[in-house]
Amino acid sequence: MSTYLIRRLLYALPILLGVNLITFALFFVVNSPDDMARMQLGVKRVTPEAIEKWKVERGYDKPLFWNAGADGLARVTDTLFVSKSLAMFRFDFGRADDGRDIATEIRTRMGPSLAIALPTFLLSLILTIWFALFLVFFRHTTLDLVGVMLCVAMMSVSSLFYIIGGQYLVSKVWSLVPISGYAEGLDGLRFLVLPVLIGVLGGLGGGARWYRTLFLEEIGKDYVKTARAKGLSELTVLWRHVLKNGMIPILTGVVVVIPTLFLGSLLTESFFGIPGLGSYTIDAINAQDFAVVRAMVFIGSLLYIIGLVATDLSYVLVDPRVRFD
């Protein structure tokens, strides 16, 4: 088990390095730092001195991969690739354009993101599974058909409309919860209700339809017939047998997501004014703060890869047939 884990984590390293190279290529090779400076300072009427100053301020005044002007090891280390890209492995993300340290910012913003994303994720998983099992229980009836049609219709609505519609109905017309905002602790609960509900609703259609097909696949198998032949009620069969076996494909899609919950949701956070990582990213995109976007890409990939490893581990927990050798 531990050797497997170590091998799996070692395999993750080249992938992270690849991600690092891709982001480096995107941010420094496709456009030179000069281009970015010109863009930020306004394309017209920009002096070479201003560009130079902008680059020095951000530490972009170095060669890409090879610093011929330096001595010894510094030829390799005193370059953009090492100081800006490889440094991210040490969680050194540099400073945002407003001068704040990106790593600190990310640490403080993870909390609010998680406060929305975690309840959304859990509630959504439970509700989706419940709804899918409900449809499977009534399979091949009109109720099932209506339910599937509802799912397809819900899938076809843009997530923007769930948010806009929810804010309008719940906050504006019914005045049940504040339209947006965030507060720490129990007091902040009223801010969380709506984004969580909307998040759950938005994912319900697609998820439930997919899980339904997974469960329907299981239900034709022999062990289900055996369970029924033993005289178990349909509900017991569904909740005890079908659910357990159906969980294996579900886990593939679900466990990967758990670490990335830290990133929060771009849309939800920006609409509801949650000071999390999602809104941080959106603000950075709109302000064209390249350092922040770069850091978020790296963190996102890191979390995703952790999720992949966790997925493999989770198979062992639910499926005794899977072994690590």
Partner: peptide
């Protein structure tokens, strides 16, 4: 390796980074 690497960057973030760079390219 290629598709695992590309796939491990969360889609929205990769798109955001690429579009941002494309905007710089077009604007300059």
């Amino acid at each position: 390796y290629l598709y695992t690497t590309l796939n491990s960057i969360p889609g929205v973030l990769l798109i955001a980074a690429s579009v941002l760079m494309m905007q710089v390219l077009i604007d300059t």
